[in-house]
Design a protein around this nucleic acid. Structure first.
Length: 590
RNA sequence: GCCCCCGUAGCCAAGCCCGGCAAGGCAUCGGACUUUUAAUCCGCAGAUCGUGGGUUCGAAUCCCACCGGGGGCACCA
């Protein structure tokens, strides 16, 4: 039995494919962590440099000059209370400093920035070069660049929303040598007047500052950043700082998701959370992850789809519901498939699949507009426009277009329609099996040859019933169901149908799936008696939709790989960093 | 499971085809420097060349196996 992705039955653009990685304990020492030096900076601040210490002779340095920042840095690192560091640790001469500047290594418990870099750039755009604004501001973020020029130091502070320069003259900045000794990557808070340098760079003059966290590991090259994608995925906490596209992708994803939620709220949809631990994996034909609950002493499966629970809620009277959440499929990895991925599933009572088409195109367009400001998305050399309305074609039409001749949509196995389609499948080098209906063969050709060629966005409608165990039969064509896939740039973006509400028909569809399972199909669905009981309580006409959030995010971010839109993509555990908890997981924990 | 590519210092990397002291840059460390913008200049240090075998007088380089990553294909279907 050969099946295709179209026959997963559920709505999962973003499901899995089998990968080819063999087992084995890795002995790899990741480039990003191997041999990293732990930079040491002193011991405890309080003991390293007691407040109130008097200045000591400055050694061989000329009188009237402080130590170089490098010299100072060395003293800090080894935790020495050296003479040369005393001048900047002595608060006695300046009563206004208070505890803030007693010791820069004293990390505060809280800090209050008063402005972001972006706000400052907005507010002081018209300030002339060399002028001061008279306004004080406190900013905080990571020090990304540092330019020490003797008695003057410039820093580039990134607050995750933008960058602002820190301007630190030795005559103004307290603990100047310490400030110069900050590392690239250190978290710093700085307060002072907003001004522009002679070169016109908006800056905060560092009149006071605090170290908020030190970067003990050196940050990547300030210009080249991180090139190794493996390191980028594994150390996203660094990647987010040094790869602008990474931060941008997750901003786009966030605004996209927020746009979807807003659009659904506007339409009266209620957001719900249904179980992730399923006693029976259902709602899609996919291999699940299996786990075990100790107290109940029974197995659970991580959900492969929330579908059956959401439709129970329609039965329960939540007539417009959606869930935006994680799905787990124990299948292979690829640039378009992740073992855990995010899907929007929604159900609307009194609606059919044509309503779902309208909803799909409008929600997608709204999400694109929220995230990127418009509906036109660049994909490679071309542009994809998500603005409604999207083209609507039947599967038979779109396959016929591809084949260059009219092909039938339905027909019994062995019939003339099936024979005609089988001939076409052979011509297109698509493998088929005896006993398939015409619709089944058509779906196979579509999946293998046509879908990837479609630019779209387009709704491909009307699938064969045997690959859609949860969809309602087509109102006018035997052998088909009212189901569509939305395709954009050759990829399945959404999957929806008029929901099957007839408990008798549903029971027979489950039975057909059970026969497949007995035939060795590990992804076939199993009968869910409680779901049938729910249907027996009455499911009104309902339209359902599943939309792949990662897939849409990939489109809007202009990336070809799902790992670029998932913060922590599933990877093989790094050797030496991921050890299972000792003592076993079957013991009760406290 | 198969095929292709990649793995050299914390980071970016040259060297590999055609075997002969592992180049350069950033960061670090020391020195100079009061309006820089990847600051600049001088100097020091930093490498199990992914791992393990093999060939060789000699291996980052050639061969084999393995580990990790990326891509493609196949299987599941």
């Amino acid at each position: 039995m050969q099946r295709c992705r179209a026959d997963r039955g559920g709505r999962a653009p973003g499901g899995g494919r089998r990968g080819g990685h063999g087992p084995g304990a890795g002995n790899r020492a990741a480039a990003g962590t191997r041999g990293l030096r732990h930079r040491r900076r002193g011991g405890h601040a309080a003991t390293a440099r007691p407040a109130g210490r008097r200045a000591a002779p400055a050694g061989r340095r000329p009188p009237g000059r402080g130590p170089s920042h490098r010299q100072h840095r060395r003293h800090r690192r080894v935790g020495v209370t050296c003479g040369v560091s005393a001048p900047c640790a002595d608060p006695a001469g300046d009563p206004t400093r208070g505890t803030l500047v007693t010791d820069r290594r004293d990390i505060p418990y809280r800090f209050e920035p008063t402005a972001t870099a972006a706000e400052l750039h907005g507010a002081h755009r018209d300030l002339a070069a060399g002028e001061s604004s008279g306004v004080r501001a406190t900013v905080a973020g990571r020090l990304m660049l540092r330019r020490v020029q003797g008695r003057l130091c410039f820093g580039t502070l990134d607050d995750a929303g933008g960058r602002i320069q820190l301007f630190a003259p030795a005559a103004v900045t307290p603990d100047y040598e310490d400030f110069c000794a900050l590392s690239i990557g250190d978290w710093v808070g700085a307060t002072g007047e907003v001004m522009k340098t002679r070169r016109g760079e908006l800056s905060v003059k560092v009149e006071d500052w605090r170290l908020l966290a030190e970067a003990r590991r050196p940050f990547p090259d300030k210009w080249h950043g991180m090139a190794d994608v493996d390191t980028r995925y594994r150390q996203r906490y660094v990647d987010l700082w040094v790869t602008p596209a990474t931060r941008s992708a997750f901003e786009i994803r966030h605004t996209m998701v927020a746009g979807i939620r807003a659009e659904l709220a506007r339409r009266g949809f209620v957001e719900v959370e249904t179980p992730m631990l399923h006693p029976i994996p259902g709602g899609a034909a996919a291999r699940p992850f299996k786990t075990h609950h100790n107290s109940l002493d029974c197995d659970f499966y991580l959900r492969v789809a929330p579908e059956l629970y959401l439709k129970r809620l329609i039965v329960g009277g939540l007539t417009r519901v959606f869930e935006l959440g994680r799905i787990f499929r124990n299948e292979g990895l690829s640039p378009r498939h992740s073992p855990e991925f995010t899907m929007l599933e929604l159900y609307q009572a009194y609606a059919d699949y044509t309503d779902m088409m309208t909803l799909t195109e409008e929600v997608s367009a709204a999400a694109a507009t929220a995230a990127t400001g418009g509906t036109e998305v660049p994909v490679g050399e071309r542009t994809l426009d998500l603005a409604p309305p999207w083209r609507r074609v039947t599967m038979a039409e779109v396959v016929s277009e591809y084949a260059g001749r009219d092909l039938p949509a339905t027909g019994e196995p062995g019939g003339s329609a099936a024979a005609e389609l089988r001939g076409e499948a052979d011509r297109l080098d698509v493998a088929t099996e005896a006993g398939w209906t015409a619709g089944r063969i058509l779906a196979e050709i579509y999946e293998r040859r046509v879908e990837g060629e479609l630019w779209g966005p387009v709704f491909v409608c009307d699938f064969p019933v045997e690959v859609s165990p949860l969809a309602r039969r087509h109102r006018s064509i035997d052998g088909l169901v009212e189901r569509f896939e939305a395709v954009a740039a050759g990829r399945e973006l959404a999957n929806a149908f008029s929901e099957l509400a007839d408990p008798d028909d549903q029971r027979s569809r489950f039975a057909a799936q059970e026969r497949r399972r007995r035939g060795g199909d590990s992804e076939a669905m199993t009968t869910d008696e409680d779901y049938l009981r729910a249907l027996e309580c009455g499911l009104p006409p309902t339209g359902g939709l599943g939309l792949g959030i990662d897939r849409l995010a990939m489109l809007l971010c202009g990336t070809d790989t799902i790992r670029d839109v998932v913060l922590f993509p599933t990877l093989r555990p790094e050797a030496g960093t991921a050890r299972p908890p000792t003592g076993g997981d079957d013991r009760p924990c406290c």
